[in-house]
Nucleic acid binder design. Structure first.
Lengths: 215, 215
DNA sequence: AGTAAGCGGAGGAATATCCTCCGTTTGAAA
DNA sequence: TTTCAAACGGAGGATATTCCTCCGCTTACT
């Protein structure tokens, strides 16, 4: 979360306020404004809690559950995210942002393609990439030209490079990577403690990636 | 479903009836009795629909949804399964039974351990083994000594034999197999048509199993 | 043809979820 | 320190969902 807490557009700044409170005209051009510290913290907590719950339960959690997990009142949730869409958008962006950023720095540093692929998949798993998929059907017009193009080039470069190296089975597609990350993000619904669940996911993801390599 | 339709115990025979209808005393010893044909068919349909829905949605479906999918009235569901427990038990047993039977015949015929393991995992996936895990937390006292012991010996013989053959990585455990079958049973929540979803699951299961083999 | 087993599904009860409203608390500018 | 708008909490009514009984009708079997 680069630049956390500093809100740089009127839109972002205004979002948390109640919707019937008119945005005064002197805010129509960009300004750097800081939310109140507690508001910042609560906003991020709400996003993080939502991500956690989605990944734990494997579906959309109730608003009440989100607020409780975040340790804030239900009113606070509705102040920051007046409707479902705004919350889902924030949540998806956050997870996407995290995994893309992680991926970009991995691409720079990894020594070969297969290694980059492996590191990226584990990093994306930890970044909560799984929520994007779960949230997606409920998201209208997720137009994030910036993120989506970054994600596209990232996937291209990672998978492409790994295939070029010749270490991966040649029938592999990007779908196999994307779907796998989704699959390994999903809870087992087996009542494992969270830490163990994550450990198993990473272990099995490793097996899976081994299986992607040429025998 | 061996012996489908022939009910051999008073318990099973009596189950579908409304609960406040007293079981007459002349039924207290075992008899071979046949349910009415339509009742048989509906009962099995209800079980199958429940399995399908659980696997599609990844959680417990509502009673209404089950009845609708089965093409019967809600009253019929409650006649056959007066409470949640009886339905869940029947569903879990059915899926477990199917995969164990499939596994047993695979063990007999497969030529080597790794091959048996692979065939079994695919068969269990198709048998709906995934529901057992999802249903399990809601099941009190699932005491099926028969099934559980059969399942135990089956797993032992499959994994044991595969390990003996030396084709699998030596740190592999039964947990890795069981959890994998659960994982590949879960829906991707990506809105794929059902057939495609199943195809992807099998494809990725194959990758995973490749990853279990020694490089 | 007779009859009890079995069926359907309307609809009230119980539950879960949503989301507004308003009195209270608090961060931060002066 | 004071001041006050921003931010907070959470009770509680509105809505949506799910549960499950009840009873008149249908049908498989003898």
């Amino acid at each position: 979360m680069p630049n956390a807490g500093v809100i740089t557009t009127v839109e972002d700044w205004w979002a948390p306020r109640v919707s019937n409170y008119p945005c005064p005209s002197h805010h129509t051009r960009k300004r750097v404004i800081r939310m109140r510290a507690d508001a910042q913290k609560n906003r991020q907590r709400l996003i993080d809690s939502t991500i956690e719950l989605i990944l734990e339960v494997g579906g959309e959690p109730s608003r009440d559950a989100i607020a409780e997990r975040a340790g804030v009142g239900i009113g606070t949730l509705y102040r920051h995210f007046p409707d479902q869409q705004s919350l889902l958008h924030a949540v998806a962006r956050c997870a996407l942002e995290r995994s893309i950023s992680a991926g970009e720095s991995i691409v720079e540093n990894a020594r070969d393609g297969a290694e980059a692929l492996r590191q990226y998949m584990h990093a994306a798993l930890d970044s909560g990439i799984g929520v994007v998929n779960i949230v997606h059907p409920f998201l209208d017009k997720p137009d994030w030209p910036d993120l989506l193009s970054r994600a596209g080039t990232l996937m291209n470069s990672i998978v492409g490079r790994a295939l070029e190296d010749g270490r991966l089975r040649s029938d592999l597609t990007e779908r196999d990577i994307v779907f796998a990350m989704i699959r390994f993000s999903r809870p087992l619904a087996v009542g494992l403690p969270l830490e163990e669940e994550r450990a198993v996911a990473h272990r099995h993801l490793d097996f899976y990636i081994d299986g992607l390599c040429i025998p």
